[in-house]
Amino acid sequence: MDQMRTFTLRGMEFSLPETAVRGGLGKALESGRYEHTEADAVERHLVEGDRFADFGAGMGYLCALAARRIGAVAVTGVEAGPKTIRLARKNLQENGFGKVRLIHGAVTGEGETAAEVEFCQRQAFWASSLRNLAQRAGRDLPQSVPVTQVPALPAARLLDELQPTVLSCDIEGAELEVLRADMPAALRLIICEIHPALYGPEGTRQIFDALARQGFAYEPEGSRGATVVFRRIGSP
């Protein structure tokens, strides 16, 4: 059984396997700067009455921050990694947010028609991704990295079901396809980590253009580096 380590982030405690705490991740957790730009954006923009969805929930950190602000029943996390979603559920329960809804599966764009997709579950969960994205980026896949079939969740259908007002999206490059989906009319804000190393400036432009066509514009408050906030024009 993996030995667990516990870290304090913004007054909450999160546990994860020792095997996952490597390199930059360990330093970020120890310093409290893990996903700090996304966390800043969540705390800055979420207001009472919001419904929050987190695509790529990881260990449950942003879901916990959102639940603390707007209540657990208004929060849904979606996570592809079978081990990672169990970790998220444990962390949320231990922080008192057991009513957060967690959905297991990989969010996909409209071009994906399969019921399941291949997912690479790395020990460092934050680097896990769909297998086809890793191959497209030319990343070598060590034999030690298990590949598993996970449910494919079409973004348009998922967004229509959840009807979030705020969406967080950190899905290791899959955002290039996912953010082309039709966004619900209620969605007012998107917090996204983009991955230009996977799809270059052309892919980044496609994301901005796709969201602009649906009335979203760059929001400087909360945006920093690869973390980009988009606000629907005319929304509060």
Rank of each mutant, 00 (worst) to 15 (best):
E202H: 08
R188S: 09
R231L: 01
A39R: 09
T19Y: 13
L162V: 03
V47R: 15
T227D: 09
D2V: 07
A152Q: 04
R44H: 14
P201C: 11
L16R: 01
W126I: 10
E18D: 14
L153C: 11
R139F: 14
V100A: 11
T148A: 14
R69V: 10
R232P: 01
V228L: 15
G111S: 07
L159V: 06
P142L: 07
L102M: 06
R205Q: 12
Q123T: 15
G96N: 02
I233S: 12
T148P: 03
R180W: 03
R5K: 15
R131I: 07
Y218Q: 02
E193K: 08
E18M: 12
E94L: 14
I85A: 07
V107K: 04
R89P: 03
V75A: 11
G58T: 04
E79S: 03
P164I: 01
R68V: 06
V47H: 13
P220C: 08
G71F: 02
Y34G: 12
G200F: 00
V145G: 10
A114I: 04
A20R: 02
T19C: 13
E35Y: 08
T76L: 03
P154V: 09
S129D: 11
L87P: 03
D2T: 13
G173Y: 04
F125R: 09
Y34I: 05
M183F: 02
R5H: 07
V145K: 08
C192T: 00
E35P: 09
